[in-house]
């Protein structure tokens, strides 16, 4: 039987004293970050975000994902029961490796963003072979 997984959306924070211009809730999306040999893959759950409303910015080594959600207009209906809130998504990461900014790839499928950040040539890990010297 499937184990019960509890879910709740966490609201994203704002810098101290700052307010958002749009009076809407902003949530922190759940992400997976996988480091591979030549790239870093960021997978983020952004349900309700259209690819047109997604902003991905990389400034120095700060990666910001912002997804805007257009709320469905259900004027004829009223919310009878609610377990989750609808709002935008925002998350910022600092990347440790130098990323090749020109080759970043982003794809959206079924509300999931997949961001492939290739490592810059200089940042790729080089394996240093240790050779054993013949003992005298």
């Amino acid at each position: 039987m499937a184990e019960i997984k509890e879910v709740s959306k966490k609201e994203a924070g704002t810098p101290q004293g700052a307010e958002r211009t749009r009076p809407q809730k902003v949530y922190t999306p759940d992400v997976d970050i996988l480091e591979r040999k030549d790239d870093i893959v960021v997978t983020a759950d952004l349900p309700g975000v259209d690819e047109k409303n997604l902003d991905i910015t990389l400034e120095k080594n700060m990666l910001t994902i912002y997804g805007r959600v257009e709320a469905d207009s259900l004027r004829m209906h009223r919310l009878a029961y609610s377990e989750y809130g609808v709002g935008d998504y925002q998350r910022t990461f600092t990347l440790s490796d130098e990323v090749d900014k020109d080759r970043i790839q982003a794809t959206m499928k079924n509300g999931v963003l997949r961001l492939v950040l290739p490592k810059a040539e200089g940042a790729k890990t080089r394996k240093i072979l240790v050779s054993a010297e013949a003992e005298a």
Binding site: I4, K5, E6, V7, S8, K9, D45, L46, P47, G48, D72, L74, M76, H77, R78, L79, A80, Y81, S82, E83, Y84, V86, K109, N110, G111, V112
Partner: peptide, 27 residues
Amino acid sequence: AAPEFPAVNVWADGDSAMVTAELPGID
């Protein structure tokens, strides 16, 4: 208690209900 996955919202009018659920990444 946080809701189980997936969280659902239920919208209602007189004759019908609309259930919405966030299922990202599910075919």
